[in-house]
């Protein structure tokens, strides 16, 4: 799967999870850049990404995430 495709889907997901259409999803985006990105919505975000791409992550994979780029890499390594 191409990065551009994943980012496009991510943009939709971020808008859905944080109810904010103005979020621009960049590789270096982190929790402190987005209003409402707390530990709860982080879980929601990860689970929504899992559902959208039909992939599953382990707790340790999720624990290591630092920014959007990390999540994109994770998706790319799993999605066909």
């Amino acid at each position: 799967m191409e990065s551009a495709e994943i980012y496009q889907e991510f943009t939709k997901i971020f808008h859905q999870v944080f109810h904010d259409d103005s979020i621009v999803v960049r590789p270096d985006l982190t929790a402190k850049d987005v209003e409402g990105w707390d530990s709860l919505s982080h879980i929601r975000l990860v689970l929504t990404v899992e559902r959208a791409f039909g992939v599953k992550f382990s707790a340790s994979e999720i624990g290591k995430l630092k920014d959007v780029a990390g999540l994109v890499d994770l998706v790319r390594s799993k999605a066909k």
């Binding site: 709860l40 559902r51 999720i62």
Partner: peptide, 14 residues
């Protein structure tokens, strides 16, 4: 099991 360990979700959020 993953969702339980991750966030103490009693059943899958789906």
């Amino acid at each position: 099991p993953t969702e339980w360990n991750l966030a103490k979700l009693a059943f899958s959020n789906s």
